[in-house]
């Protein structure tokens, strides 16, 4: 989300490319659709993301955003809200995606913490249902971890 704010701000101010600003907010909306998290924390994230989407679109579709902001913020006037600021620390992704291979063939992916240890990654890979399926019950001879990129299980 902070990446979206940063990109959209740059699109409006420096690049003056509004089509890509809109596309970035659309992507954000797509990502929101997949959350489906009703926990208090999940709802807080949803609130923050919807507020950002409404603010980022406000220069282009001001009427609907004025109305939606009032709903999100209990009647507040969108024009009084300062532009969302980018939290630089949030820009650093704390999770990364690794490709999963069995005998060098692509068999899916896993998401792990950026600072996960080699051992933890190996365990997660071996526990992955798809990897287990293609291991066909054979033991792993070797597990190769290429940091930041992939895990290859050799059977």
């Amino acid at each position: 989300m902070h990446g979206t704010i940063q990109k959209v701000s740059d699109d409006y101010g420096r690049r003056q490319q509004f089509n890509t600003a809109i596309a970035a907010v659309m992507e954000l909306m797509n990502a929101l659709g997949k959350i489906g998290d009703d926990s208090p924390a999940g709802r807080a994230v949803m609130q923050e993301a919807l507020e950002a989407a409404v603010q980022l679109l406000a220069p282009i579709v001001p009427h609907v955003c004025q109305a939606l902001w009032a709903e999100l913020r209990d009647g507040a006037n969108l024009l009084d809200a300062p532009w969302p600021t980018v939290d630089a620390s949030a820009l650093v992704q704390d999770e990364i995606e690794l490709v999963l291979q069995v005998n060098g063939k692509l068999r899916g992916s896993i998401t792990v913490a950026r600072d996960a240890s080699k051992e933890a990654i190996e365990q997660l890979a071996l526990a992955n249902p798809n990897v287990q399926k293609f291991m066909e019950g054979k033991p792993a001879k070797k597990v190769v971890v290429v940091p930041g990129r992939l895990v290859n299980v050799v059977v």
């Binding site: 909306m29 990502a31 959350i35 998290d37 009703d38 926990s39 993301a49 989407a53 409404v54």
Partner: peptide, 29 residues
């Protein structure tokens, strides 16, 4: 725009008391 409207509507109209058994941890978007 209809989708944007509906997303806010769904969010706002949901009870603020969400069930405690909601799964997972909120991650980055």
């Amino acid at each position: 725009l209809k989708r944007l409207w509906k997303a806010v509507y769904d969010h706002v109209e949901k009870s603020p008391h969400t069930p405690p058994f909601a799964k997972g941890v909120a991650g980055g978007i």
